[in-house]
Amino acid sequence: MSRVPSPPPPAEMSSGPVAESWCYTQIKVVKFSYMWTINNFSFCREEMGEVIKSSTFSSGANDKLKWCLRVNPKGLDEESKDYLSLYLLLVSCPKSEVRAKFKFSILNAKGEETKAMESQRAYRFVQGKDWGFKKFIRRDFLLDEANGLLPDDKLTLFCEVSVVQDSVNISGQNTMNMVKVPECRLADELGGLWENSRFTDCCLCVAGQEFQAHKAILAARSPVFSAMFEHEMEESKKNRVEINDVEPEVFKEMMCFIYTGKAPNLDKMADDLLAAADKYALERLKVMCEDALCSNLSVENAAEILILADLHSADQLKTQAVDFINYHASDVLETSGWKSMVVSHPHLVAEAYRSLASAQCPFLGPPRKRLKQS
Rank of each mutant, 00 (worst) to 15 (best):
H214N: 14
S92V: 09
C203F: 12
W131E: 00
A219H: 15
Q373R: 05
S54W: 00
E118K: 08
Q173R: 02
C203E: 13
D291V: 07
V29F: 02
F57Q: 03
S14V: 03
K238Q: 04
L297F: 10
S167M: 03
H347Q: 03
L348Q: 03
Y353H: 11
E230D: 12
V287E: 06
S92R: 06
L273V: 02
V246M: 04
S162E: 15
V342Q: 10
A292T: 09
A146K: 07
E234C: 15
K180C: 04
V224S: 15
S14C: 08
A122W: 02
G192S: 11
E247Q: 03
T175R: 05
G208Q: 12
Y259A: 01
R124G: 14
M176A: 03
R368L: 12
M255L: 02
I27T: 09
M178G: 05
F133L: 11
W67Y: 07
G261Q: 10
E189D: 04
E97I: 05
I52H: 04
E20I: 09
M1I: 00
E304T: 13
K28Y: 14
L193A: 07
K135H: 15
L193D: 04
M117C: 01
P8Y: 13
Y280Q: 01
F199H: 13
Y34V: 12
L76T: 11
V246Y: 08
N326M: 10
G111V: 09
D140T: 10
G191K: 03
Q120H: 11
Q165A: 02
L285I: 02
S21K: 11
L149H: 05
S14Y: 13
L311R: 03
H347V: 04
A122I: 13
S6D: 10
N72M: 06
M176V: 03
S295V: 15
M269S: 03
S2P: 07
P94A: 04
M233W: 05
N40E: 03
K115W: 12
E242V: 02
S96I: 10
R45I: 02
L149C: 04
L371V: 13
V18T: 13
K66L: 04
Q360H: 09
Q320R: 06
A19V: 06
R240Q: 05
P182E: 01
V246N: 03
A187V: 05
F125R: 02
A227W: 11
E145L: 08
E334Y: 14
E12L: 06
S226V: 13
E230M: 11
S33F: 04
V51C: 08
L84F: 04
F102L: 12
L69W: 08
W67S: 00
D331Y: 03
L157G: 00
S355Y: 08
K268S: 13
K101S: 15
E189Q: 08
Y87E: 00
S96M: 11
I170S: 02
K134E: 04
D144L: 14
G75W: 06
N244S: 05
T37M: 06
K129R: 07
T114I: 04
P346Y: 11
S15M: 10
G148P: 07
L204S: 11
D152K: 14
I307Q: 09
A207L: 07
A116I: 15
G111Q: 15
D272L: 03
L89Q: 10
L311M: 03
L76Q: 11
F104S: 00
M35T: 04
M288C: 12
C159A: 06
Q320A: 01
L142Q: 03
G49N: 06
S171W: 04
L333M: 07
G337N: 03
E183D: 03
K215Y: 09
E50D: 02
S374A: 12
R139C: 11
C159H: 10
L190E: 01
T156E: 14
M341N: 00
N296G: 12
V168P: 10
E242K: 02
V126E: 02
A187I: 07
A122V: 05
I38E: 00
S167H: 05
D315P: 13
I325A: 11
E300C: 08
Q360G: 03
A100P: 01
L218I: 06
I38C: 04
S298R: 06
P5I: 06
H312P: 01
D152C: 12
S119Q: 00
F229C: 14
W338E: 00
R124I: 14
V206F: 13
S236Q: 01
W338L: 05
S226W: 14
N72R: 07
C202Q: 14
P94M: 11
R370V: 13
L65N: 13
